[in-house]
Design a protein around this nucleic acid. Structure first.
Length: 196
DNA sequence: TATAAGATTTACT
DNA sequence: GTAAATCTTATAT
């Protein structure tokens, strides 16, 4: 049987390392009685206080970002542009606002459910962006701060051993405002995830 | 209190 | 390729 990633995984201190390790793991949701899941194919690391692209840059603490300051192992879901829910994994210990944005997965289970949630017949690119993925999996802000060891949203270990040459590291996307931090190689993309 | 911009996606020209 | 949809937070009056 697949096994959930242990809490110790999320408590690691190198958020960039965690982002890379999450490639190839299985993200699952069991929401409103529907099960859906897929392999994580794209992630981005957000290194809290020192990362200009992060909401928590410079130690900003608001009602929205307070989730990132909690201990690792929970979900950080927030509303972007007023209409899209973005799903992040909170890492590190308490009071260190590190998080990993899950940008894309390869759908495995619950294809019909995902299509139904997305609406229309968008066969291509069902879950190839943060907003789309959250919608397909049924994730919304009401799941902010839920434990990733619970029964609604979790990440499973897989037998996959992804060689490093199958993981592409590159600059993050959609954060041009971050200036000198926008080119940091904090984004990880699984080769097999491209063009699916 | 009011205004601007954002870790995005979709539709239209 | 460009613009609209739409809400929370940050910064300024």
């Amino acid at each position: 049987m697949p096994q959930k990633l242990p809490i110790s995984f999320y408590r690691q201190h190198n958020v960039v390392d965690i982002a890379q390790q999450l490639i190839g793991k299985r993200l699952c949701t069991h929401i409103n009685g529907g099960f859906a899941g897929g392999l994580i194919s794209e992630t981005e690391a957000y290194e809290g206080v020192t990362d200009k692209a992060s909401h928590a840059y410079g130690g900003r603490y608001t009602k929205r970002t307070q989730t990132m300051y909690k201990q690792g192992g929970i979900a950080y879901v927030y509303l972007c542009y007023g209409m899209y829910h973005l799903f992040n994994v909170v890492t590190h210990e308490e009071n260190v606002p590190h998080a990993v944005l899950i940008r894309a997965i390869l759908p495995e289970t619950g294809l019909d459910l995902m299509k139904e949630r997305r609406g229309r017949n968008l066969f291509k690119n069902l879950t190839d962006g943060p907003g789309k993925m959250s919608k397909a999996l049924g994730i919304s802000t009401q799941y902010n701060e839920v434990s990733l060891l619970g029964n609604e949203i979790w990440i499973e270990e897989t037998d996959l051993k992804i060689p490093e040459n199958e993981i592409i590291a590159g600059p993050r996307i959609g954060i041009d405002y971050a200036e000198e931090h926008k080119d940091l190689p904090y984004r990880f993309l699984w080769k097999r995830g491209r063009g699916v």
